[in-house]
Design a protein around this nucleic acid. Structure first.
Length: 301
RNA sequence: GCGCCGGUCGGAUAGUGGCUAUUCCAGGGGACUGUAAAUCCCCGGUCUUUAUGACAUCGUUGGUUCGAGUCCAACCCGGCGCA
């Protein structure tokens, strides 16, 4: 056997996969087996109060395993990759210092990649006023503005994507131009395990899970969130269940449309997740729990 | 049975008789430099050498016309109204 170049690096485990594939429960099992702690890589579970709709793991289900990056910010505020990466870097260090295995578990590909590939993003905070102003411009105008500010970035940016254009202009405004994407390989030995899922099987799980979320009181949860000041506009921004819950509570759609449309939308979301994950060829896709354990036993030796 | 209205891609929809039958959704594929559950792009009749290629197609059959999804007739199906 060849000596692994990663020999002395601390190990980090990543469990990823499409929504409803059973990541959370598996992560807890693995944490118990390998003395680990879980870091959630979910762009919506960071928000307090978004519990049933995001499928956030309950205290009971955690079985005593510490979970990080859950419930850390109010849904009225916005949270992004950079915030997540900073906190996750810190959490990883803390866990390693305790002599335990960090297990990153989630379905937000961009967040996971920021750690695994060590993406260095420019230090430019969102500029609310600027965004508001740019929002009123059309595509063509935004392209013209960016072209003038940063003739390099315009070459590879998606010129049809307003959100990206606005962000690029925002960065160029403070830094003069958008720096090339930098990647600094993190000093860890990372293994990424993807939970494979059969299409039909996943569709079934999505449907069943949705029904069970309704039974658990997902609609009440949304009502409560609104009662404590979460606007329907913001709720919509949070996507999927919350988007449709807002529509339903504002009587824009019927209950049966709510169920049908949401189910479709979650399926489409899972496909988008897979499109993202497929790009990373280093992910090991496994179907069965025992295969995961076999893979990990090998990796840990 | 009579009258009216309508039958266009899986669903919904546009289409003054003129050459490539529209758009939206669903479906499939893809992108991703701080909104990522977001945002955005491509494909969607059949065949092939995948192309401003060939051949189809608008309930069915026939007709008018140089030319029909569009006009006419009959029939079939659906909705509404009257019996």
């Amino acid at each position: 056997m060849t000596i692994k170049s990663t020999k002395n690096k601390p190990k980090i485990l990543v469990i990823l996969g499409p929504t409803a594939s059973g990541k959370s429960a598996l992560a807890v099992k693995l944490a118990r087996k390998y003395n680990g702690e879980v870091i959630s890589a979910d762009s919506r579970q960071v928000y307090k109060g978004l519990n049933i709709g995001t499928g956030k793991i309950t205290k009971k289900e955690m079985l005593g395993i510490p979970h990080h990056l859950l419930d850390i910010v109010s849904p009225k505020e916005t949270f992004n990759v950079v915030d997540w990466k900073k906190l996750t870097d810190k959490a990883i260090n803390d866990i390693l210092n305790r002599g335990k295995l960090p297990i990153i578990c989630g379905g937000t590909g961009f967040y996971i990649q920021s750690i695994v590939d060590g993406i260095v993003l420019p230090e430019v905070a969102p500029n609310k006023e600027l965004r508001k102003k740019l929002e009123t411009k059309n595509l063509e105008e935004l392209v013209t503005i960016l072209k003038k500010m940063d003739p390099e970035r315009i070459k590879n940016i998606d010129t049809k994507n307003k959100v990206r254009l606005v962000r690029a202009i925002e960065i160029a405004k403070t830094l003069g131009s958008v720096p090339n994407l930098k990647k600094v390989k993190p000093p860890y030995d990372v293994i990424q395990i993807g939970l494979m899922a059969d299409d039909e099987d996943l569709k079934k799980k999505i449907k069943n899970r949705l029904v069970s979320r309704i039974k658990k009181g997902m609609i009440m949860e949304a009502l409560n969130l609104h009662a404590v000041g979460l606007s329907y506009k913001r709720m919509r921004e949070l996507g999927l269940e919350y988007k449709f819950l807002a529509d339903f509570l504002e009587k824009k759609i019927t209950k049966s449309d709510f169920m049908k449309n949401l189910e479709t939308e979650i399926w489409r979301y899972s496909k988008r997740q897979m499109t993202w994950f497929k790009r990373d060829k280093s992910i090991k896709w496994l179907l069965k729990e025992k295969d995961v354990i076999a893979e990990l036993n090998y990796w840990l030796t």
